[in-house]
Computed example of a mutant assay.
Amino acid sequence: MRLDLQAKSFAGKEILGPIEISVGRGERVAILGPSGIGKSTLLRILAGLDRNFQGRRDGDERLAMVFQEPVLLPWRDALANITIPTGCDRKTAIEWMGRAGLAGHEAKFPRQMSLGQQRRLALARAFAAGPDILLADEPYASLDAETATRMVSLTGELLDRSGAGLILVTHDPNEGAALEARALRLSGTPARLQKD
Rank of each mutant, 00 (worst) to 15 (best):
L3F: 04
D4G: 01
L5H: 06
K8G: 09
F10T: 06
F10H: 11
F10V: 14
G12E: 08
I15D: 03
G17P: 00
G17F: 10
I19S: 05
I19L: 04
S22T: 04
V23W: 08
R28E: 09
I31A: 11
T41D: 06
L43D: 05
R44L: 13
R44H: 15
I45F: 07
A47Y: 11
D50A: 10
N52C: 06
R56H: 13
A64W: 00
M65K: 08
M65P: 04
V66T: 08
F67N: 01
Q68G: 11
L72N: 11
W75H: 15
I84H: 12
G87A: 05
C88I: 03
C88R: 12
R90T: 00
T92W: 01
A93N: 10
I94P: 01
W96D: 11
G98C: 03
R99Q: 08
A100G: 12
G101R: 13
G101A: 13
L102H: 05
K108I: 00
K108A: 15
F109I: 07
R111E: 15
G116S: 13
Q117N: 07
Q118T: 02
R120M: 04
L123V: 02
P131V: 12
P131Q: 13
A136V: 01
D137V: 10
D137S: 08
E146P: 00
T147D: 08
T147N: 06
T149V: 00
V152N: 05
S153K: 14
S153W: 09
T155A: 12
E157I: 06
E157T: 12
D160P: 00
R161M: 02
I167W: 08
L168Y: 01
D172V: 10
P173M: 12
N174F: 11
E175P: 01
E175I: 03
G176C: 07
L179H: 03
L179C: 01
R182F: 04
A183M: 13
P190Y: 14
P190T: 11
A191G: 07
